[in-house]
Computed example of a mutant assay.
Amino acid sequence: MQLQKIDKARYRSHLNKVIFACIICLTAGSLGISQTLIVLFPDQDGSHFHWNLLGVVTSALVIGWLLNKFRAHPFMYEVVYVWDLKQALNRVTRKMPKLKKAAQQGDVDAMLAMQFSYSGSKQLWELDDNTITLEDLGLWQAELDTLAAKYQVTLDIQQYDEAILKKF
């Protein structure tokens, strides 16, 4: 995955619309399905938990299917990009202890994966207005820059390929 420039206002607007649509669909779908099943198959005890649960699960599955179906739609571009970015960053984060150890020993691929993680995290946190940890990120980036200078390595995140993580 390569980092791309994302318009924050457009991303926030589209994300809010997608979330709102999912909430409305989940609410309406759950109630509609469960109420229809309750009318068709009433329970003598008055407990309709299983019909309510079935309504929620069915609605959630339909929403998931719809989100996947419209994943390639231009309206979803920013939302899907951030979703994919979060998944890519999670894959790097799971390997971070090994990456840090390898970077200390001069492994260029480890430093490149860390650079991708730090750059991607910065973009993600700025898009989501999560600026609390940006100071920590600056410290981590400074440590990585020191390692890159020590081993005379130029880190270009355009060269990052997720396949290098298999090595760690």
Rank of each mutant, 00 (worst) to 15 (best):
L3G: 00
S13P: 06
S13E: 10
H14I: 03
L15F: 10
K17T: 06
V18E: 10
I19Y: 02
I23A: 09
G29M: 06
S30V: 05
Q35T: 13
T36N: 05
V39D: 11
L40R: 11
F41S: 13
Q44V: 15
G46N: 06
G46A: 01
S47L: 11
H50N: 12
H50A: 12
N52C: 05
V57E: 07
V57Y: 10
S59H: 07
V62K: 03
I63H: 05
R71V: 04
A72I: 08
A72S: 12
Y77E: 13
Y81V: 04
V82K: 00
D84G: 10
N90C: 06
R91T: 11
R94I: 09
K95W: 05
K95M: 05
L99S: 12
K100I: 08
K101H: 15
A103T: 04
Q104V: 15
Q105T: 01
Q105C: 02
D109G: 08
L112W: 08
A113H: 00
M114P: 04
F116G: 13
S117W: 10
G120K: 01
K122V: 03
W125T: 02
W125C: 11
D128K: 10
N130V: 06
I132H: 14
L134S: 02
E135A: 14
L139E: 11
E143F: 03
T146P: 00
A148D: 01
A149F: 00
K150Y: 02
L155C: 06
I157Q: 13
Q158G: 15
Q159P: 08
I164D: 06
K166M: 10
